[in-house]
Structure formats: C-alpha cells, structure tokens
Design a binder for these strands. Sequence first.
DNA 1: GTTATTTAAGTTGTGCACAATTTAATTTTA
DNA 2: TAAAATTAAATTGTGCACAACTTAAATAAC
Lengths: 123, 123
Amino acid sequence: MYRPYLDKLGITYPQYLVLLVLWEQDETTVKALGAELYLDSGTLTPLLKRMEDSGLIKRERSKEDERRVMVRLTTKGEELKEEASIIPDAMAANSGLSKEEFKKALTGFQQLLDHIHTVNDKK
Amino acid sequence: MYRPYLDKLGITYPQYLVLLVLWEQDETTVKALGAELYLDSGTLTPLLKRMEDSGLIKRERSKEDERRVMVRLTTKGEELKEEASIIPDAMAANSGLSKEEFKKALTGFQQLLDHIHTVNDKK
DNA sequence: GTTATTTAAGTTGTGCACAATTTAATTTTA
DNA sequence: TAAAATTAAATTGTGCACAACTTAAATAAC
C-alpha cells in the first residue's frame, strides 16, 4: 500500500513515521520519538543512522544532558513533506473505506495501540 | 501482548499463526500457507525450517508435484493446541474491548487486510 | 563529596518481512 | 516432441523490531 509512494521518496515506512513526527515538531529526542512511535532504541538508533546517512536528519548529543540525542530535520527532510502530503489520502482511497470511516478506523487503531502499550507496561 | 503466552509455549507469533492454520487443517502447502497468512516464501521457508527444527512440523516435497512442499503437524505440534487455547480470550481481555467489540474488530481487521492485498495484487 | 540508583542511547543476538532473483518442476504452446 | 511460459520454493540482500545487556551521564541518597 505505502511502498510505491515511499519508494518514490526514497524512504521506508518506519522512516516515514519518524518524518511525520519531525514535520510536526522540527526537533525531538530519541526517547521522545520512541515514546511517540512505540519503538525502542535498538530499533531507532540504526534507523536514524540510515536517515542521517541519507541527509534527511541530523543527530547531535545534547550539551545540557549528554545522555540525550537531539534529532532534527535537514532542509532535505523538510522538503519531503510536500511530496508526502498525498500519501494519507491515497491510503484512504486504497483502503476501500470512505474518508470518514478511514478516519474513524485510524482513531480506533491508535486507541487500541495506546491501550495495548499501557497493558504491556504494567507487566 | 502475545509474547508472555507464546514464550511459555516456546514459539514466536508468526509460528503461532502457522499453527493456527495447521490446527484447522492438519496438512497444507507452503503456497497455501502464504495465501492464508499473506506471507511470501522468503519469510515462510526459514520460519518453517525453524519450526521443523523444533519438532513442531514436518516438511516433505510432494511426490505428485515436486514444486510443492507439504507441511504437516507433528504430535508435538498438535499438543500445543490445548495450551494455546487460552490465548484468544487473554488477548480479548487485554485489549480493553468487550468480547463482542473484540470479535467485531477482528472481523474488521481481516476485511481491511483482504482488501489491501486485493489492491496490492492489482499493481 | 561519595556511593547507589536511575536514565538515555547504543550494541548484540535473533526472528522476521519483503523485493528481486534463481532453481527446478510442471504446463502450455506450436 | 521440443521449446516457451508459468509455477512453487528457495536464496540473497536489506530493513526492521524487540529482548537483554552494556556504557556513560545525571540524579538521589547518605
């Protein structure tokens, strides 16, 4: 579903998720990215490294707290936003659901995901 | 969510999916498994090999058509069915949804999945 | 001020998941 | 009957995803 669109942009689906977060808030930490996307650092570190190698982001250890790594968009990363803007509607169109049903489904998925992670964290 | 239950049985989630299919129909082909689970042979071949190494299944090339590999349960694989029978209810309980909502959600997921693969196959 | 605890990121190991390609077998076509 | 086309599984390459562990930095406790 996503792949033909993402191949055009030269990114993978998890990279697209990272960009979605960064397009909304320009700079974040690895920890915050992990919390937002439910991904742990074993997944994020190599993922972000590849994105940095592609020139989409820049990583830099925080001077305030050296345990933290700040992640920010490059100009190239910002520029992808426009090209990627057609993807949500294309996914909705391919889903076989109406726009309203699609939005409802996304909300339901997010709620279920949030709940599952809450339950997992309690164990 | 699944992992604590599956760790007890000594299997992974994709292996559990394969077993779900085999518990219903004792023997199948790699091709049919792939169609049922939307997994391609690059994923299935190593997955089934590990299951065979664990003694859960047996693989054998069909004498009728040597392109096909038949996959069947072993006694050990059959025995896991009983232990695994609590998993669906446990997942429903952990989902934060009622039993009815949970069933409805599964049906919705399956329909969406089927549709997405139909769309993908057309491309 | 020092030690213990907690936190954030990174590493290692393992199991997928899929695209593309290869190999071998079967079916179709001429 | 032989060649071409199609099919099924396997292999190769790459990108995750997560558990467990390690390292380094910051915070809490004494």
